[in-house]
């Protein structure tokens, strides 16, 4: 057997090795979000009860819940489980201070987000629902009235609302946190 023949006889094994590598790589990447034990939802789950507004400490060295938190932001979360009923989020926002709300499905993808600029007459009024709850709500809606609230269908039963409020200047940190403490967040009966 010449050296060339030996090399050629190994070629299919080499190809099989690379195929295995590709399959293992793709499978592990796709499974990461499902298997990661310390993703954002897992971390917040231990910090916050369901359907109630939970202020979090602003990012400071040694006590951060996640990397890359903005130290200038006051933060609060509201974790939900739509089996408890739709989640009502209501915030009265005055002034021109930056406040944002992002709605995270379990698995951490954001399915909706808005800033204080989305407030209608200074109010943000959101109802997070399942597709079934949305159907029930729409069936009960009066014919010719547009609902006052923004209805968001959550792709998962569980998730969380992440709220940020900017302290543009260091001494405004308390003011920024107070804006979030006024946000109402609760499960609602259908």
């Amino acid at each position: 057997m010449s050296a060339l023949d030996r090399a050629l006889s190994l070629a299919p094994w080499l190809a099989a090795t690379l195929m295995t590598a590709a399959i293992v790589h793709l499978a592990s990447i796709l499974l990461m979000p499902a298997l990661a034990p310390r993703d954002a939802f897992a971390r917040l789950e231990t910090l916050a009860p369901r359907a109630s507004l939970t202020p979090l400490a602003p990012a400071r060295p040694g006590r951060e819940i996640a990397p890359f938190g903005d130290p200038a932001m006051a933060v609060a979360i509201c974790r939900y489980d739509l089996r408890d009923g739709p989640l009502r989020l209501r915030a009265e926002l005055t002034g021109d201070d930056f406040v944002s709300f992002s709605f995270h499905a379990r698995g951490a993808a954001i399915f909706y987000a808005m800033t204080d600029k989305a407030a209608f007459r200074g109010v943000i009024d959101v109802l997070v629902v399942t597709p079934q709850q949305l159907e029930a709500l729409e069936a009960a809606d009066p014919e010719d009235e547009i609902p006052a609230e923004t209805r968001l269908v959550s792709p998962t039963l569980e998730g969380f609302v992440y709220m940020r409020s900017l302290a543009a200047l260091p001494w405004q940190a308390e003011e920024a946190a107070a804006r979030l403490r006024k946000v109402e967040c609760a499960a609602e009966a259908l």
Binding site: M32, P33, A36, D39, A66, G69, S100, A113
Partner: peptide, 16 residues
């Protein structure tokens, strides 16, 4: 998605 699942970072949405 895999990177975020590992770090636990809470991303910003484009709307924010």
């Amino acid at each position: 998605a895999a990177v975020l699942a590992r770090t636990g970072e809470i991303p910003l949405d484009l709307a924010e």
